[in-house]
Design a protein around this nucleic acid. Structure first.
Length: 114
DNA sequence: ATAAGGGCACCGC
DNA sequence: CGCGGTGCCCTTA
């Protein structure tokens, strides 16, 4: 079961779960699409997670900029990769080039819910 | 309803 | 160790 898609009012259940998970990310920390996907129960839906964040219409409530690639790279951002880096830096995260410094340290891993 | 795209991840060479 | 190609799932046109 664990269907990754549950109908909702506006956003798909999948998106809702993703957004909820992203909102759980503490400030000054970051997470990866992989952990995020795994956190919602769909470790293979890493790309779907990105798409879901893209449909996010409230970036203020949903710090999608705290979501980066599993290799420590910033990845992309619906507002622009450059913008994402700036925001992360403001969060107190050190970024070298396009990579996050101390990535493993600030990496927030979701608990294995379920 | 079908087709292509996308804010990735992993494996192989 | 670095780069390329493929795979998986959801969204939008």
């Amino acid at each position: 079961m664990s269907r990754c898609q549950i109908k909702s009012k506006n956003l798909s259940g999948f998106a809702s779960k993703v957004l909820a998970a992203v909102k759980r990310i503490p400030k000054g920390k970051v997470t990866t699409y992989k952990f995020l996907a795994r956190g919602i129960g769909c470790p293979k839906a890493v790309r779907a997670v990105g798409s879901a964040l893209k449909k996010n219409s409230t970036p203020i409530k949903i710090p999608c900029h705290r979501v980066v690639q599993s290799n420590g790279l910033i990845g992309n951002y619906f507002l622009g990769k450059r913008k994402k880096v700036l925001i992360l830096q403001k969060e107190g995260i050190r970024i070298v080039g396009n990579k996050i410094e101390n990535f493993s340290k600030i990496l927030y891993q979701f608990k294995n819910k379920n």
